[in-house]
Amino acid sequence: MPYVRAFVVGGLLCAIAQAAMDLTKANPAIIMVSAVSMGAILSGLGLYAPLVEFAGAGATIPLPGFGHTLVTGMLEDAAQWGIFGILTGGFKAVSAGLLSAVLFGYLMAVLFNPKG
């Protein structure tokens, strides 16, 4: 059952992004930027956490999950340190994702060449 929920929610998020791209004819970069920002906004409205609860990886793997993680991290630290928590909490929460991207990105660039 968790797999079905992950499939449906993850698939739906992607389908919405695709619909947005095809209907507005925007380029992928603009859609990705909008998606990640929407995730942050939904997180602020308290709507994204229940989605993660419900769909697990189906909500955290798509890009809006990145925005959600940032907001959650900022608010967690802010609960402890007030406004300064916003400075420290965000990147702490997404550190693994960013670090993996830089690390593996670099590694792959060393190992492979583009095939076109």
Binding site: M21, K25, P28, P114, K115, G116
Partner: peptide, 20 residues
């Protein structure tokens, strides 16, 4: 050259995107 033009005018050649 497709790939040379792609990286200059559009995206890196290994970037996954749909063409209209």
């Amino acid at each position: 050259h497709h790939d040379a033009a792609e990286r200059q005018f559009r995206y890196p050649t290994e970037f996954g995107h749909q063409r209209p």
